[in-house]
């Protein structure tokens, strides 16, 4: 598969040469597949936040390069703003960025900065609001009058309105309840499918990762630790646990069942996946024992 965004040998160190020196990323090379949702996991301080800020040019790598469609994003440093429109970044707790008088004006801030016509801005605002499932009646309200979950969605819409080729989100569902989480993450999947966009999702929730991502990149101590499909990564639960990373609770249960002799296969990191696998195993065992009983009956 083709990589839309690629890090080549990227390092980033904060406070280099001071007593507070901290290596955030060390010789990281990783590619993000076009049109896929890639999850980035790693515990606090593993370099995730630095990574997302490097992807859209808020930070400049100290060594190595970042390629967007094969071209170095820092080729022309003066035009880095154009890269930021193509790689949209939603920061953690993005509701803090809301400032304009109405939700409509706030979502339209980035499109206006891009120099689009008022009609085009309006079209983009409506489109973006629809993707995050924000009701059109809310567009005329003050962003400060919205509920917590609505604010979060309005802020995400403010980035989607740029129609970025790559959408990077740092913990977009943090602190929300299950309904709020599924509204946001579901909206993102819809955006990815309809627009063919690439989504990069940073999250601590392994359950969400298992449900929404195609691929996973795990970071540990400033380095890429695992990189593969969701299956590949979550099947290496022991290694993940060793570096202090979680796996979905249901995956832990599936592994325990396998250890105790229940043969499970297939998707073993979501509830329906494990349930189906267990059902298959259970029904197979029932069939065999009935067959065995029938067989014993024949002998008698």
């Amino acid at each position: 598969m083709e990589n839309i965004l690629e890090l080549k040998d990227v390092s980033y160190v904060y406070g280099s040469g001071t007593p507070f020196e901290m290596v955030a990323l060390k010789n990281v090379s990783v590619g993000f597949e076009k049109g896929k949702i890639t999850g980035v996991i790693g515990h606090t301080g593993s370099g995730k936040s630095t990574l997302v800020q490097l992807l859209n040019g808020l930070l400049r790598p100290q060594t190595g390069s970042i390629l967007l469609n094969g071209e170095d994003i820092w080729q022309k440093p003066k035009e880095i703003q154009k890269i930021r429109y193509r790689v949209g970044l939603v920061m953690q707790y993005p509701e803090y960025q809301l400032f304009d008088e109405t939700v409509r004006a706030d979502i339209g801030y980035a499109p206006r900065n891009m120099g689009l016509s008022p009609e085009e801005v309006e079209a983009r605002v409506k489109e973006a609001a629809a993707f995050v499932r924000l009701d059109e009646s809310l567009l005329a309200q003050s962003p400060f009058a919205l509920s917590g979950g609505q604010k979060r969605r309005a802020a995400i819409a403010g980035i989607i309105a740029m129609r970025p080729e790559v959408l990077v989100l740092d913990e977009p569902a943090a602190g929300l309840d299950p309904l709020g989480r599924s509204e946001i993450l579901g909206g993102l999947r819809e955006y990815q499918r309809t627009c063919g966009a690439t989504v990069i999702l940073v999250s601590h929730s392994m359950e969400d990762m298992a449900q929404y991502c195609d691929r996973i990149v795990a970071l540990n101590h400033a380095e890429v630790f695992l990189n593969g499909t969701v299956d590949e990564v979550f099947s290496r639960s022991r290694e993940l646990a060793e570096v202090g990373l979680d796996i979905p609770r249901i995956a832990r249960i599936a592994i325990a069942l396998q250890k105790r002799g229940v043969p499970l296969d297939g998707n073993l990191y979501t509830v329906p996946g494990v349930a189906k696998a267990y059902l298959r195993a259970w029904q197979e065992k029932q069939r065999r024992s009935t067959a065995a009983q029938a067989g014993e009956g024949d002998h008698a």
Partner: peptide, 15 residues
């Protein structure tokens, strides 16, 4: 009401 049960409960419910 938009809440989820823990994954273990959801698994048992499914089965």
């Amino acid at each position: 009401i938009g809440l989820e049960a823990p994954q273990t409960t959801e698994l048992f419910d499914f089965l």
